[in-house]
Structures are given as C-alpha cells and as structure tokens.
Design a protein around this nucleic acid. Structure first.
Lengths: 230, 230
DNA sequence: ACCTGAACACCGTTCAAGT
DNA sequence: ACCTGAACACCGTTCAAGT
C-alpha cells in the first residue's frame, strides 16, 4: 500500500515533465471519479489518461489491463461505502447497515454497473460481508443461516439498485403509466386496473425499506423457529 | 414523448418481400440467438449482420439504431419467458411463476445484461407484471400492496440473476473460500469463522427458493394484517 | 527506467453511391 | 426501393521508439 500524497491534478511546475508523479491510488481515484461522473461507458482508458494529463499508454505502466484496473476500482468503491457497525438490537443494526449501503449505491450508480460486469471477491468488498455476518452471528444465528440471510440481503439491496426505481423517477413513472394505458385492456386487465399504483410503485421512495423490512422480519422468524425447536 | 416506438421499420403490407428476404423479426431472432451465445458484448451490429449474411448497414434499414434494436430484443426476450398462470392457491402460483422466470433468466443470462443496460417498459416485459398482478389481486390484495409486492419480487428475482451465485459456481465457491482464508483474521473474524458457509451460500442452488419463500411469507402476512383490521 | 505516439483490430453510425 | 462499401470518430491494446 503506497502512502503517496494526494494528487489533485498535475499542476506541477511548468517545464517539469520528467515524471508524472502518479501512484496506482491516484489512478484508481481518478477512475472512480470518472465512473461517478460519466458511468461505466464513460470510463475509458483513453479518457482516464486524458483526465490524468498523461499519455494513454502510461496507465498500462500501473495496471496490466483495463480489467485489472476495474478490479482495483471495485475494491476502492466498496471501501468507500464504509459499512459501520451501529449500536442497538441486531435488526436495527442490519436495517441501518443496508440502508447506508443502498444510499451509497444510489449516489454512485457506476459502482453497481461495475459489480454487475465484474463480480469479484476483494478485501474491500468483503468488508460488507464481515459487518453483516458479525451482526447475524451475534444475534445467535448459526453460520449457515447467517450466510444465507446475508446473501439474500445482499442480492436484494444490489438488485434494488440495479432494477429498482431510478432516482429521476418522476418521468419514468409517467412513462410507465402511459405505456400501461396504451395496452389492450382485454389482455392486460389487472395492469390496466392498477395503472396508477403500478406506476407509483416504480418510483416509490419507501419501496426499498418496504422490502427490506420483509426480509428482516423473515430472518427474525428463522431465529424464532430455531428457538422453538430447543 | 412517443408512447409506442416502431419496432418494424417497414410499414408496408405484411409479407412485403425485401431483397434479402429479411423481416424485423428475423433480425430480432438472430440478435437474441447471438445474445444467448456470446452475451451482450458479443452482440454487435457488425457481428449480427455477418450472422445474417448481409452488409452491416442493412440492419439499419430495419432499426434506426442499435438501441432501438435492443429494445425490440428485450421485448422478444421477455415474451420468450412466457409467464403462464398455474392453478392452485395464490402463494403456490406466485412461487411457480417466479421460479419459472428465474429458470429462464438462468438459461439466458444475456437478457439480464440487456435489461440492466436498458430498463424499459414494453408490452412483452409487462406480461410478467400482468400475470403477477392478477394473482395478487385475486388473492385479495389492494392495488397498492399488490403493486409493491410485485415490484419487490421482480427486484429480488432479477437481482438474484444479476448478483446471485452463477451457474458454474463450483469454481467460484472455491475461489471465494480461498479469498476469505487469505484475509487477516483480526480484521475479519466473523468471516474467517464462517468461511465454509459463506462460500457455500455463494453457490447454494436452493438459495433462490430460500429468499423467495421469505418474501412470499411476508406478503402473506401483509394480507393477514389487513384482515385483522376488518 | 519511465513514458508514449503510431498502428492494429475492433465498435456504432453517417454518407453517398450501388443495384 | 432496397441494400451497401467507404469513411469517421471512437475503443483496448501491442509494439517500438522516445526521453
């Protein structure tokens, strides 16, 4: 791990073009910023090099390929989510944990694109796993149940960010309602009848918590069932 | 905003013969096959044209752009899932519906890539919504609750296909276990302790049903609560 | 040693021409 | 009317040369 200074641009003294003064972390940081700003499609090796004010091929001196760079970006993006362990009962802890993850993913949609394209296990990504597993184990769940519950919560939260309502959902909601209204009523009766609600559910901002609560309640019940058997 | 976009560039009488003998449906079918075989990255306009034995630009005579073609492919891919309405109690119906969707998505991973990249409301995609909404409405749920429950199930199922264990998960599982074992035990105690289970949950084939059952139980409880209030 | 432009094999798409 | 090659502006990456 390099303890390099923050780059914040290369406004180095004019005429000093001997070194770029670049560290791998600088490159990853710039890539993460570019990903946030322009999405995965906008994160190109050429664009990144332009951003860093170096030749395109310079980046290849630090990462052997774009894939290798992306793996480092995923790790950095996961670390940025910083899953902290709050106090309180386990259910409240899990709720707060996943709400903060959801919040982070909503703010950085590029991270989801990345983790969809390159699923990977890196130390940074496993921090979340560790935090959730600790809470579940301390709540008394056995390893197997805890692991499965974690996985379900992970899938739900990342799935919501990938396939749930988007931030700018006002237009989407209207578009959905329009599309439903245009359907033939004889083939889509239930949908036509609930057009308003279906469109609203598209953009419902409380929807994430709604589903999260379902899962937390079910997980709680898993524990109760196990207790009953004692 | 146009409610309906043309997926057919040729507005002539049905059966109009082009010199290539190509119809928009032929192109969509070939695109879907290419998507299944090589994934979204392999689905290029040039490759598709090669597949169809026509010049690259010929495809643009049927679809104004790649995006327009992809929308048609999504619609066709959704129709291919054919959500049928089985008999039995609503919970069993929903279970069977979503298991079949999950199955279809597992067999055609490219469809998930597509719907992740281009979320869209098309008649084909709405067939699933219609099927699920019918079941929920007939079970007695009000429109709002039915719409939210549907949305959660959709997000879970598509999220599972995007972020859940992959088909070839034996190697993945081993890789995960290795990655966890390599972590420092002082910083990841819960993970290290449950390495076996965490890795197993990665590739657990029953995991989808496990989570689905959680959600179905929670939905059932929503109805019970509502009944209590009567 | 580090950095990089030129070049190669790809993309989607515009344009002008082919039949 | 339908179809298409050439060309343009991109991509990731190899290679050989620049300092």
């Amino acid at each position: 791990v390099a303890a390099e200074q923050t780059s914040t641009g290369t406004q180095g003294t004019p005429g000093t073009k001997a070194r770029t003064g670049l560290s791998p972390d600088d490159i990853v940081d710039a890539a993460l910023a570019l990903l946030d700003r322009e999405g995965l499609d906008g994160l190109t090796m050429r664009g990144l090099a332009r951003e860093l004010d170096v030749g395109t091929m310079t980046v290849y001196g630090y990462f052997r390929s774009k894939d290798e760079l992306l793996d480092a970006v995923i790790d950095a993006g996961a670390k940025r989510m910083e899953p902290e362990r709050p106090a309180g009962p386990w259910k409240a802890q899990l709720r707060e944990l996943w709400l903060s993850i959801r919040q982070s993913l909503a703010e950085h949609p590029g991270v989801i694109e990345l983790r969809f394209k390159r699923p990977i296990v890196s130390p940074g990504a496993l921090e979340l796993t560790e935090a959730a597993m600790q809470i579940l184990r301390d709540a008394g769940f056995d390893s197997r149940t805890a692991a499965r519950a974690y996985r379900i919560l992970f899938i739900y939260t990342f799935g919501f960010s990938a396939f749930g309502p988007k931030e700018s959902s006002l237009a989407d909601s209207e578009r959905t309602k329009g599309a439903i209204s245009a359907l033939p009523a004889d083939r889509y009766p239930a949908l036509r009848e609930a057009a308003e609600e279906a469109a609203a559910a598209m953009g419902d901002s409380g929807l994430f918590e709604f589903g999260l609560e379902m899962l937390l309640d079910s997980i709680e019940r898993l524990g109760e069932d196990a207790s009953d058997e004692l």
